[in-house]
Design a protein around this nucleic acid. Structure first.
Lengths: 180, 180
DNA sequence: AAAAACGAGGATAAAACTAGTCCGCGTTAT
DNA sequence: ATAACGCGGACTAGTTTTATCCTCGTTTTT
């Protein structure tokens, strides 16, 4: 697939949901079901976001995640780096020093400065990261909510309420019948 | 490894050698040995560069590759796309349409325009590609040759001459002794 | 106290991708 | 005729990605 992975895609979409849910914590299972993605896979992503200080976790029943800071202060680059771990776009293998003419002992003028090819790749990487660093979750989140009708917010609210009630202790989930 | 692969790194370095060798064709084996990289792997890369119109191949003995156009007209982006095949930075899976609230049937306002997350990734990708499109092989090649002393050009010339003579029919390569 | 919903993290697995090898084919200069 | 070429397919090993499952300790509610 691509260099910006599905993990990042999942992570950002989850964070957008969290940015709309205020102080309420949502569990990774809630977020997975809400978006039709794998709960177990999502559970692997959130600890990375927490270590990066993007979300705050609360354990136990009714626990889950909430944003650790305002959505306007979380950039796409923050999320990409948190999940993918600042992998470089290009890993220079210093081919220039291997020239057979040097016979294994490259002269100083060859090693001077960084490799020209590497330099171009670093410029390209920086340009990409600069764009990602300038876009926050709030930028995308508010644009989406402007398109959504009023009813959407309440629909989501009731969906979450129903889900929480459905698993409320005292009323066994078995009563609603397992799928299949 | 990284998204811009070793194949691209090898390809660019080879093209830089070709940009310095004028009308003379160099075989992929020459280029591999000259740079201490795998000949068989390099042989997989060049057909892609040829199909993209970056190099011209000549078959048979003393054949090989030469640039199909001036180094100043070959950009890094040309090479990356030729070898990696214009893979996108990010593959949007349209998570937005999967919201459980929609129950499998996303309303029109959701699908309107491209996904906001995707939009940011496309901007980042474009920024990266713009940088690669603005750098030509000549930019990097001339910078390298400015650092190199006069002797380097002649050293390389004699290395190539020796290599060609060494395999000249009429003088069996066995006479020089196999390595090991 | 017990049950159930949480997060954290390890073990495992399938699929895709990357890097690299090997071989046989047709072509061409010597 | 030979040997150096490019071309292309089959194949392999290692890594990464995308999961799944299970156990553990934590926390809230009954």
């Amino acid at each position: 697939m691509a260099h910006i992975t599905t993990s990042v895609e999942y992570g950002i979409h989850c964070l957008l949901w969290l940015s709309g849910s205020g102080e309420v914590s949502l569990s990774s299972r809630d977020l997975a079901e809400l978006q039709g993605i794998s709960p177990s896979f999502l559970a692997k992503i959130f600890p990375k976001l927490e270590k990066a200080g993007i979300v705050a976790a609360s354990e136990g029943v009714r626990g889950g995640y909430r944003l650790a800071k305002p959505a306007s202060e979380i950039t796409f680059l923050d999320v990409v780096d948190a999940i993918e771990g600042e992998k470089p776009l290009f890993e220079c293998q210093n081919i220039r020093t291997r020239c057979a003419v040097f016979d294994g002992d490259a002269p100083d003028w060859v090693c001077e400065g960084i490799c020209g090819v590497h330099g171009v790749m670093l410029l390209a990487e920086k340009a990409m990261r600069d764009v990602l660093a300038k876009k926050s979750l709030a930028d995308v989140g508010t644009a989406f909510m402007r398109k959504a009708p009023q009813s959407f917010g309440t629909d989501v609210g009731t969906w979450i309420d129903d889900r929480v009630k459905g698993r409320k202790p005292g009323r066994t989930p078995k009563n609603s019948g397992p799928p299949g």
